[in-house]
Design a binder for these strands. Structure first.
Lengths: 228, 228
DNA sequence: ATCTGGTTCGAACGTTCGTTCCAATAATAA
DNA sequence: TTATTATTGGAACGAACGTTCGAACCAGAT
């Protein structure tokens, strides 16, 4: 219940970040909050949600421990704000990209490119989103879970489209989740100095995945040619 | 240094689990330790390493808090023992399976089947291994990291074999890590009541992956046939 | 100069953390 | 039985945790 109807330490702070989601960081308050979220993302990235203390977060934000509570009511809500913003943004961008593509195969490529690009451009936030999946309880957790389900369903829809258009028959669920696994695992191994950039990585993964789901039956042992 | 030359609370406990790795759970001590590890795996699975307290672990083991320290010197070492045992076992089983396969494609399938089967049969331990990757520091962490590298290299070798045998040219590194992503992500979504069993899941993922890396160029838009 | 509302922080609250000490108990050997 | 060793747990340690409180500070308006 504290999750759905939170009591804020200060009435000014309360009215602000309740619904604004600080997306439009206009006011002084919103701008400062956005900076705190950015620093908190760094700390969560390095120490994990449980491992990071409010004192760590305060120190990295250049603010006192108690001062933090002027901007959010609890550590849990801080994580929630980070995850919600990150997820909302990636879904937003995806929707814009999908508007411009109609071919089922290209739409899947667009999905993958969007995910990988955003993932690498915001690696820390995306790790916090992927890794701290179970950290939020009750209301907070439910809201993020809903966003996740929405994102999942978009991808599922793309794969169903593609399956119908090509008359294939794979399990869309297994395919979606395998694809998510490929992409979300990136944060555990990616090294920007030695590994390919976002566009190339998206292409490699996209090729593996699309070829993987695109033919019936087992792997052919001989070379193939177009017959029709 | 505490990691490489640990001091045990009790001299009896010290000599035991130092090198035995409790694999051969013969003595009373080893059997009890194995049970504690099993219960601790459950708790780490549900609450994470940082989120699980020694008091949680003790309660689930039906033992007093201080009694736990007779079996291991620290919470960190407890996680280390779980991870080391799990990883050692999966590598062991893999080596046995690979002995029986010589065809490069079948060897990759064997790798995937081994991983997925063990993953689903020991889902909790495998989540603790995958998810709590950065929890161990210094000596403990280095040892697990070495096992991980070994496992990675085995898979890399299999993909290189396959690439040479089929005269393909994908990036083995990206391929390995994509495959690991697919498989290790399972713990975030798998539902034994509704999702396919290990053999079928391994087959689906194996098919996606192998077809994905098996052809050159882009996805063909037409049907294919064997010509040679 | 005073007032007002937004912003900051030092100090402290009560709780929980991992770990230790040491006495008590159970098992085994003599 | 007694002597010895292996195992257990109650109580406590100091440190760290998330959160709260109230006083202080700062800006801009009056």
């Amino acid at each position: 219940m504290a999750a759905t109807t939170p009591t804020f330490g200060s009435p000014q702070a309360a009215a602000r970040n309740r619904e604004s989601l600080f997306a439009a960081s206009d006011s002084r308050f919103d701008r400062r909050l956005a900076k705190i979220l950015a620093h908190a993302t760094d700390v969560f990235y390095e120490k994990g949600y449980e491992g990071a203390s409010m004192r760590d977060l305060a120190r990295h934000s250049g603010m006192s421990l108690s001062g933090m509570y002027y901007y959010f009511e609890s550590k849990e809500r801080l994580l929630y704000l980070i995850q919600k913003y990150t997820f909302t943004t990636i879904v937003e961008r995806l929707r814009e990209r999908l508007k411009q593509e109609s071919d089922p195969e290209r739409r899947i490529h667009a999905f993958i490119l969007n995910h990988v690009q955003y993932f690498l451009a915001n690696q820390k936030a995306m790790k916090v989103l992927s890794h701290e999946d179970e950290a939020l309880k009750n209301g907070f957790g439910a809201e993020i879970a809903a966003l996740k389900r929405e994102y999942y369903r978009i991808c599922l829809g793309l794969l169903d489209e593609y399956k119908r258009a090509r008359k294939l028959n794979y399990s869309s669920r297994t395919a979606v989740l395998s694809l998510f696994g490929m992409m979300n695992w990136i944060y555990t191994w990616y090294n920007p100095r030695t590994d390919p950039d976002a566009e190339q990585l998206a292409e490699e993964m996209g090729d593996i995945f699309l070829r993987g789901i695109s033919s019936q039956g087992k792997v052919n042992r001989k070379k193939k040619a177009v017959v029709n």
